[in-house]
Simulated assay, not measured.
Amino acid sequence: MIIYFAAAACAVGVVIAASRLVRRTRGTVDDDAPDGPTSSHTGAMLSALFLLAFAIAIVVPWTTADSARSNTYTESQAITEAYWAAERLPAVDARRVQEGLITYVELVRGPEWRLMKHGRLSSRGWAELDGLRHEVIAIQAPTDEAKDARGAVLDHLGEVSAARRQRAADAATTPPAGLLAVTFLTGVVVLLLPFLVGARPRGMALVPLALMAGLLAAGTYLTIDISHVFTGALAVGPEAFTSLHADLQRIAGGG
């Protein structure tokens, strides 16, 4: 953050130095008109900077949300495969592993999903998943078929764990704070620029200015609202796990 302020201070210093040097040259004129070259150039550059920051602040969360949503279905599919692979285990062990998977899904789509809105996953979820893996490792496999079944379940649980770690990373991901700050500040400056250069809007000139202000405010709020993957307008919901839970209950009931 200090580097950002230092860069801004250097840029301001360059402008001041350039203005003093230009004053000493011939052929220059004072420019204090609201629609003069200085105001026009500054307004265009500020608008471009705002649009650039706004575009990045929209595209990055949108892309992250799409990736996070896809990952929830990847995790749910891995759980489904682990559930079916457990069918090949001895009956008692199979039932225990499958019940553990259902418990894990219930935890994820309920308490853990609410916790992810705050950027983290529950420690209980990790404990449930690790406990399942320890249980499967401890299963006695006297035959090659049983060993293959145990290995398949462990492979799928590894896929679940990898998808869960990605979900933890998604929950903690937000755009850089500086990006949101630049979007907000440039929006405010673009809004106030006519007044800063000495213009005094009157009558119907206030209508487009007011519309611009409203749209800038809405756009800036949008960048803040979608900055987190699991909250706001683009929030990723637990639909994948809700559907999975229904499917597992159906399979467990023999449906």
Results as ranks from 00 to 15, higher is better:
residue 192 L to W: 09
residue 192 L to A: 12
residue 192 L to K: 01
residue 193 L to P: 00
residue 193 L to S: 11
residue 194 P to Q: 08
residue 194 P to R: 03
residue 194 P to M: 05
residue 195 F to V: 12
residue 195 F to R: 12
residue 195 F to W: 14
residue 196 L to K: 07
residue 196 L to Y: 03
residue 197 V to T: 08
residue 197 V to R: 09
residue 197 V to W: 04
residue 198 G to T: 05
residue 198 G to M: 03
residue 198 G to P: 06
residue 198 G to A: 11
residue 199 A to C: 04
residue 199 A to S: 10
residue 199 A to E: 01
residue 200 R to Q: 09
residue 200 R to P: 00
residue 200 R to E: 07
residue 201 P to K: 02
residue 201 P to S: 06
residue 201 P to I: 12
residue 201 P to D: 07
residue 202 R to F: 12
residue 202 R to T: 15
residue 202 R to E: 11
residue 203 G to P: 00
residue 203 G to S: 04
residue 204 M to E: 14
residue 204 M to F: 14
residue 204 M to P: 02
residue 205 A to T: 11
residue 205 A to S: 08
residue 205 A to E: 12
residue 205 A to R: 15
residue 205 A to W: 07
residue 206 L to F: 02
residue 206 L to P: 09
residue 206 L to E: 03
residue 206 L to C: 08
residue 206 L to S: 02
residue 207 V to S: 08
residue 208 P to R: 11
residue 208 P to Y: 13
residue 208 P to T: 07
residue 209 L to I: 15
residue 209 L to D: 04
residue 209 L to C: 00
residue 209 L to V: 13
residue 209 L to A: 13
residue 209 L to Q: 09
residue 210 A to R: 01
residue 211 L to K: 06
residue 211 L to D: 05
residue 211 L to E: 09
residue 211 L to S: 09
residue 212 M to V: 10
residue 213 A to Y: 03
residue 213 A to P: 01
residue 213 A to G: 13
residue 213 A to K: 00
residue 214 G to W: 06
residue 214 G to Q: 07
residue 215 L to S: 15
residue 215 L to A: 14
residue 215 L to T: 09
residue 215 L to W: 14
residue 216 L to A: 08
residue 216 L to K: 08
residue 217 A to K: 09
residue 217 A to Q: 08
residue 217 A to M: 14
residue 219 G to P: 06
residue 219 G to T: 04
residue 219 G to A: 10
residue 220 T to N: 07
residue 220 T to V: 12
residue 220 T to M: 08
residue 220 T to K: 01
residue 221 Y to A: 12
residue 221 Y to Q: 14
residue 221 Y to T: 10
residue 222 L to I: 02
residue 222 L to P: 02
residue 222 L to Y: 05
residue 223 T to L: 02
residue 224 I to D: 10
residue 224 I to Y: 15
residue 224 I to A: 13
residue 225 D to G: 04
residue 225 D to M: 04
residue 225 D to Y: 05
residue 225 D to S: 03
residue 226 I to H: 00
residue 226 I to Q: 00
residue 226 I to D: 02
residue 227 S to E: 13
residue 228 H to S: 10
residue 228 H to K: 15
residue 229 V to N: 02
residue 230 F to V: 00
residue 230 F to G: 00
residue 230 F to D: 00
residue 231 T to E: 12
residue 231 T to G: 04
residue 231 T to D: 09
residue 232 G to M: 04
residue 232 G to Q: 06
residue 232 G to K: 01
residue 232 G to R: 05
residue 232 G to W: 10
residue 233 A to R: 15
residue 233 A to S: 15
residue 233 A to P: 02
residue 233 A to N: 13
